[in-house]
């Protein structure tokens, strides 16, 4: 390995992990103790990313408290550095990380609540595109089951055994009571938004599975099959008309 790469690996370990940078400190110059100056980079790395996570997960911070959030965020940035230079994309794994920590594991809804917040953040910066109408599907005739639909960029789908949407509304409307009992209830949520506006709505299970399958890139035929497995009483035709009618589909993926 080239000498520079080895030097940068050691500096990376000191900045991300807060290690002693053994082996690299003797190479540094600057002031009476260059190692202390290296800590400026360590501090910036941690403070900037912890601040980013707390900003993105403000509702989650409200739920678990600032102290737990701060500890979790520091642990996360030490173990999971950003994989890309766009910090807007950083933090998608944080809900799972929170759910695995001893301090927050007992809060059963924490992962889904944090994921809902992550999706809302994504929806807020999305931009809606012009929607297609049912006429656009007519040209495919008997082959319509083989096409896919491109959905609005801000759409995300989240299923949870907890009514995390109720909890999120309490946060967003600042109407949290002194105590709130969260009872286990299956919810199937569609999260959407555009140009700063956000929404999250409950769907019935069949419609949720249908729309999620299309958002994942499956064909109408496959999405319909999956939806009927989830709810054999679902009217797939009506589900498709509803999707199109709400302006959620923006293009067709031809067979």
């Amino acid at each position: 390995m080239p000498r520079l790469a080895e030097l940068q690996r050691k500096l990376r370990d000191a900045i991300v992990g807060g290690g002693e940078a053994s082996g690299v400190v003797p190479l540094l110059v600057g002031g009476a103790n260059p190692a202390e100056r290296l800590a400026i980079h360590r501090h910036h790395y941690e403070a900037s990313l912890v601040g980013t996570l707390i900003g993105k997960f403000a509702a989650t911070t409200w739920l678990i408290g600032s102290a737990l959030m701060d500890d979790a965020a520091k642990a996360f940035v030490s173990r999971h550095p950003p994989a890309a230079p766009c910090i807007a994309e950083y933090g998608g794994d944080f809900p799972r990380f929170l759910a695995e920590r001893a301090e927050t594991r007992s809060l059963g809804c924490i992962r889904d609540f944090a994921e809902l917040e992550w999706h809302l953040g994504h929806a807020a910066i999305a931009v809606d595109s012009p929607a297609i109408d049912l006429q656009a599907l007519a040209a495919y005739g008997d082959r319509v089951a083989d096409i896919g639909l491109v959905v609005q960029g801000g759409l995300r789908y989240l299923a949870s055994p907890w009514p995390v949407d109720d909890l999120m509304r309490l946060y967003l409307t600042e109407t949290a009571p002194d105590s709130f009992v969260l009872s286990a209830t299956d919810v199937w949520l569609e999260i959407g938004g555009s140009r700063g506006a956000i929404r999250f709505d409950r769907l019935d299970r069949g419609t949720f599975v249908f729309r999620r399958a299309l958002a994942e890139g499956h064909t109408l035929g496959v999405a319909g099959e999956q939806a009927l497995e989830a709810d054999e009483s679902l009217d797939v035709g009506a589900a498709l008309r509803s999707l199109i009618g709400k302006g959620l589909a923006i293009d067709i993926r031809s067979p």
């Binding site: 940068q8 500096l11 990376r12 910036h44 900037s48 550095p81 994989a83 230079p85």
Partner: peptide
Amino acid sequence: THEGEFLNDLV
């Protein structure tokens, strides 16, 4: 950046 990790700083 170092081996796919971004340090969010200029070193």
